[in-house]
């Protein structure tokens, strides 16, 4: 058997590896360089990274010392990873609906990948107190009032529903 931290390392490397591959492929899409398979690689790697993300989160929670979120790094990891996952799902759904990997699409994919890699970097800082992202203000957490978050949820649901209906009509 292996310990939770080791399992977390495995799942994290799986997740980050796929996200990193997706990021490189999206960069090629942005530059319009490289093989034609770059679009397929970007989106399939992004999907793979998304599927591995829950395992990384669950093993991370299991292996973290202490109870609950008692460090601003952990709070920022939650917010960044959720934002990244949302953007990634949006990119994949847009692709499924027939969107081309144009500049805006590729940039969004790269932002999603960047946020997830930042999340992983913060995990390294949390466990080993070492990071290359020393310039990122990770100790500051922006927490909305709960009513504002609910408002954002409603707004998100309305936008998604509107987009889905328009897609069906067209």
């Amino acid at each position: 058997m292996i310990s939770s931290p080791t399992l977390h390392v495995i799942s994290t490397e799986l997740t980050i590896g796929m996200f990193a591959l997706s990021g490189v492929a999206f960069l090629l899409c942005l530059l319009q360089k490289g093989p034609l398979s770059r679009e397929a690689v970007a989106h399939w790697a992004l999907l793979g990274g998304l599927l591995a993300t829950p395992f990384a989160i669950l093993t991370g929670i299991d292996s973290a010392p202490g109870d609950g979120i008692d460090n601003p790094l952990l709070a920022n990891k939650v917010l960044l990873s959720m934002t990244s996952a949302g953007l990634a799902i949006g990119v994949l759904v847009r692709r499924k609906w027939g969107g081309e990997a144009d500049i805006r699409h590729a940039c969004t994919g790269m932002i999603s990948v960047g946020l997830m890699l930042t999340t992983a970097g913060m995990g390294g800082e949390y466990s080993r107190n070492e990071t290359l992202l020393f310039f990122v203000p990770k100790e500051t957490v922006l927490i909305f009032p709960i009513w504002a978050s609910i408002l954002l949820i409603i707004l998100g649901i309305v936008i998604i529903a509107k987009s889905a209906i328009q897609h069906r009509v067209s």
């Binding site: 959720m82 847009r94 954002l152 067209s170």
Partner: peptide
């Protein structure tokens, strides 16, 4: 809740850019 809101908002803002 904020994490979930950001997740939905991120997805919706990309999906609204319909092809």
């Amino acid at each position: 809740v904020q994490g979930f809101a950001l997740f939905l908002l991120g997805a919706s803002l990309v999906m609204i850019q319909r092809p």
